Simulated scan of single mutants.
Amino acid sequence: MLRHDQRLADMADGNSVSESTVRRWRDELITLLAAQAPRLDRALRKVAKRGGEVVLIDGTLIRTQRRTGKADRRNYSGKHRCHGLHFLALTDENGRLIWISAAWPGRTHDNTAARHDHVLAHLRAAGLGALADLGFRGLDNDILDPVIVTGYTAGRTHKLTPGQKDANRVLAVGRAPVEHGFAHLKNWRTLTKLRTDPARATQLLRALLVLTNLEVNR
């Protein structure tokens, strides 16, 4: 941090600083901020320690600048009809972002990303439940003691019962804060210039998570 303080002082004194040097400082700062982002297990334990009982989980696509070539096809999301990177995120009951996953190709399914990060196991270890949309159906197959609640969906051969419709409405109300949490993150204009480098995107999103929470807590 002392090095960064000295660099800021040099800039304030009017010393000449090249564009490449500024970019390097920017990248170093992003790396430092990203390192402060909480790990999944620690984020969940913190929620439980505060007396929380559930978290909200969702997957989102961050649109990226399209690149040519076959290698970029996996970044195309058929659901959103655009190129991007897929992230999982958790918020607390009030919509405050508490964790964000590493970047995945845009076509990645929510359950695939959740299984890779062992989200279900971490929830059980912390003694927490999670409210999720239908994209997470099948992730938690424990009928007797489910941790993840996803609601009900109608099929070709059956319609939802009035009770199931009521349950879906209650779930939708309970999940509303997650959109508020994502809104804080997506308001950063720098995301409009994001490219499809997963490692770089992961660091940037986690750095923005740290800054977002600093802003919210002011």
Rank of each mutant, 00 (worst) to 15 (best):
K165V: 04
T91A: 06
D41P: 01
D117Q: 05
R115G: 03
T157K: 15
D41M: 03
G84K: 08
G52C: 06
T192N: 15
L208Q: 09
R175P: 00
K193V: 10
R23L: 13
D13W: 12
L134S: 11
N111F: 08
Y152K: 00
G84F: 01
A114V: 02
T212M: 03
A207P: 10
G14S: 14
R137L: 07
G181V: 02
N168V: 01
L160N: 08
A34I: 03
C82Y: 05
L128A: 14
R50V: 06
R26E: 10
I143Q: 09
R3S: 11
I98Q: 02
D27I: 09
R7K: 13
A199P: 02
R195F: 10
R206E: 04
A43G: 03
M11K: 10
A9T: 13
A207Y: 09
E179C: 00
G95T: 05
G181L: 01
D58L: 01
M11V: 10
Q203M: 09
N111S: 12
L90D: 01
R195L: 11
G69M: 06
L211F: 04
R45L: 01
R107T: 11
V55C: 00
P105C: 08
A103R: 12
L139H: 03
R124C: 05
R200M: 12
L134A: 12
G138F: 01
V55G: 03
A102Y: 14
L209T: 01
V119T: 06
W99K: 07
L191Y: 15
P177T: 05
L171H: 12
G138T: 01
G174K: 11
W188A: 13
R26G: 10
R7S: 14
H109N: 05
Y152A: 01
A132Q: 04
T31I: 06
Q6H: 14
V55R: 00
L61R: 01
L214S: 09
G95Y: 02
N94T: 11
T91F: 02
T202C: 06
P105G: 09
D13F: 09
P162V: 02
D145V: 03
N94A: 15
W104A: 06
H86Q: 09
L2H: 12
F136A: 09
P105E: 12
P177G: 07
I148G: 11
A102M: 10
A37K: 02
D142L: 07
D5N: 12
H4P: 05
G138I: 03
P162C: 05
Q65H: 13
G174V: 05
V119R: 04
Q36H: 08
L44S: 03
T192F: 12
W99E: 05
R74N: 10
N111T: 15
T60G: 00
Q164R: 07
K159I: 04
T196K: 13
D92L: 00
D117A: 07
Y76M: 04
A71T: 02
V149A: 13
I100R: 01
P146V: 09
R50M: 13
A199E: 10
A71K: 03
D72Q: 02
H184K: 06
A34G: 02
I62P: 03
G51M: 04
E19S: 07
D197H: 14
A121R: 06
R107A: 13
E53N: 11
V54L: 09
A12Y: 07
V54I: 07
N213A: 00
G163S: 07
W188Y: 15
